[in-house]
Amino acid sequence: MDKRNREFDLLFQKYYSELCIFAYRYVTSKDVAEDIVQELFCHFLESGTVFRHEDGESSLRSYLYTCTRSRAIDYLRHAGNRHARLEDHAHNIELESYVENMLINRTEEYDYRVLLSEINTAISALPVKTKRVFLMSRAEEMSNKEIAISLGVSIKAIEKHMTKAISHIRAHLQKNLSIG
């Protein structure tokens, strides 16, 4: 296998998931989000795009995010697809574009895998019930309402658990990775 393919694979494995999450913000469909990101990488592969490291990791990242966004927006424009996320819930458009730009232009160099493993450690240290709620929400993709029903508690209680979980995990990251 030639070198470029190997680099391509590493690049793909590094960015695929986060780009899907980002695309999902626009298209609110897992399948569509994946299609968009896969097509983007397919395009790189077919056109023989070479990514040079001297450009720096963060500019590569911004580039990938920007490409993903424009493809997602193209998809929404095409054949009158709706931007469901913005339509279903009242959003402050200014905040949306502010957050979007923050995500695209992140500069901090962070090792995704280290971060994930630290998050992992932090999750395992959560109180049992909080951990359960957090995993149901983030891993099993259940809505707060679904979790509330299945555990027989109020939605407010679920929100409290989520806040507690996320704030614990963040505190853990602060302490161990000195970020945020």
Partner: peptide, 30 residues
Amino acid sequence: HEQMFLVYYDVWSLPRQLAFDPQVALKKIY
């Protein structure tokens, strides 16, 4: 503050990224 927000974003989105499996997806690319 921005930095802090991004950490929340990571904590919130990283576990869900597992739903997007690069290993499965990579096969479709080639």
